[in-house]
Structures are given as C-alpha cells and as structure tokens.
Amino acid sequence: MKSSLLFTAFLALISGAHSTDWVQYENSLYTAGSGNVTWSDARAACRKLHPRADLITIHSYGELDFVAGMFGEDIWIGFNDIETEDRYVWANGATVDFTVWAERVDNTAKNCVHMDSGYSGAWVEDYCSNSLTFACKIEL
C-alpha cells in the first residue's frame, strides 16, 4: 500500500515538474540542475522546476552515496550559514541530523556548501558567488 501511495505521489509531482527527469530514492525525488550557477541562482532554478523543489538535503550515508553516485561532480547542496556565521542550516528548513565535512576552514566569507566529488561526496565550505552545478530534491 505504501509503495502505491508513493508511486501516485511521484506521478502527481512529475506531472507538475515540467519535463525534467526525476529519480526516486526512498521518499524523495532528485534531478540534476542545468549549468553552473551561483548558490542562490541554483536554489531559484530548483523552485522553477517545481514549487516544492529545493537544493538537496542529505540525511544519511545511504543518501550521500546515492547522490554522489548519481551526480559524480561537485554540486551545490542546501546547507549554508548565510543567516548566522557557523550556524549551518538547510535552506528548506529541514532538521540538521547528518553532516559529513571534507574540511572545515573557519572563513566568514564562505557561507555556502558544496558536495565535493573528490572527497566521496563530503562537504566543503565555498563562496556563494562561485558557479557550480547543482541538484534539486522534492521530499514526498
């Protein structure tokens, strides 16, 4: 019963998500963004794809492995400390229940985070104005 409900939700979301290819992992849908853009432009691009889409959040090693395997390059994720220095939050307000830093350098100018393919998907602080590719997620 649960999988048929997820499939129904999946079809409903896809029909409203333009013609982008979405892939399901557990209770979420993922898609690759188009081009290299700043963090804020990446977030806006996700929302253009679907009103409930946002930059990806990662909550487990399983999800990290899935995303790293799916994209295989450095990508923006929704983790940031834009509002308060050194207080990292998910852009969509999700609970911070998992982190995997590749390196942490206390740099007040770096407020956005990307998933680094060179570190098996671990996270690196970055300048929000840098241009990277990105991934979007819809939580079902």
Results as ranks from 00 to 15, higher is better:
Val100Thr: 04
Trp22Pro: 03
Thr108Pro: 06
Leu11Phe: 11
Val113Tyr: 09
Tyr61Lys: 08
Arg104Val: 13
Asp41Pro: 01
Gly33Leu: 12
Leu13Ile: 12
Asp54Lys: 04
Ser131Glu: 02
Ser4Trp: 06
Val89His: 09
Thr31Phe: 04
Tyr61Asp: 14
Asn80Lys: 01
Ser3Ile: 03
Tyr88Ser: 05
Val23Leu: 13
Trp39Ala: 09
Leu6Tyr: 02
Tyr30Arg: 08
Ser40Lys: 07
Asn107Leu: 03
Leu5Val: 04
Glu85Tyr: 12
Ala91Glu: 08
Ala102Trp: 00
Glu139Trp: 00
Ala45Lys: 09
Arg43Ala: 13
Gln24Ala: 14
Thr20Gln: 14
Val23Gly: 07
Ala53Gln: 02
Glu26Trp: 11
Asp106Arg: 08
Arg87His: 14
Leu29Phe: 13
Asp54Glu: 15
Glu26Thr: 00
Tyr25Gly: 00
Val67Glu: 05
Asn80Gly: 01
Trp90Val: 04
Val113Asn: 14
Asp86Glu: 09
Gly69Trp: 01
Ser3Gly: 01
Gly16Gln: 08
Ala12His: 09
Ala102Gln: 07
Val89Leu: 08
Asp116Asn: 05
Arg87Ile: 11
Cys128Ile: 00
Met115Thr: 06
Ile138Ala: 00
Pro51Tyr: 01
Phe79Pro: 00
Ser19Pro: 01
Ser4Lys: 06
Val124Thr: 14
Glu139Ile: 04
Asp21Ser: 15
Asp97Cys: 14
Gly121Asn: 13
Ile56Pro: 01
Ala94Gly: 02
Ile56Cys: 09
Asp21Gly: 06
Tyr61Ala: 12
Arg43Leu: 04
Ile138Val: 11
Ala109Leu: 05
Ala42Tyr: 05
Ala12Leu: 11
His114Ser: 12
His50Met: 07
Ser117Ile: 11
Ala94Val: 04
Ala122Tyr: 10
Ser117Ala: 14
Ala135Ser: 14
Leu140Ile: 14
Trp90Ile: 10
Arg104Trp: 10
Thr108Gly: 03
Thr108Asp: 07
Ala68Arg: 15
Met115Ser: 12
Asn107Val: 03
Ala68Cys: 13
Tyr127Trp: 08
Phe10Gly: 00
Thr95Ile: 07
Asp86Lys: 12
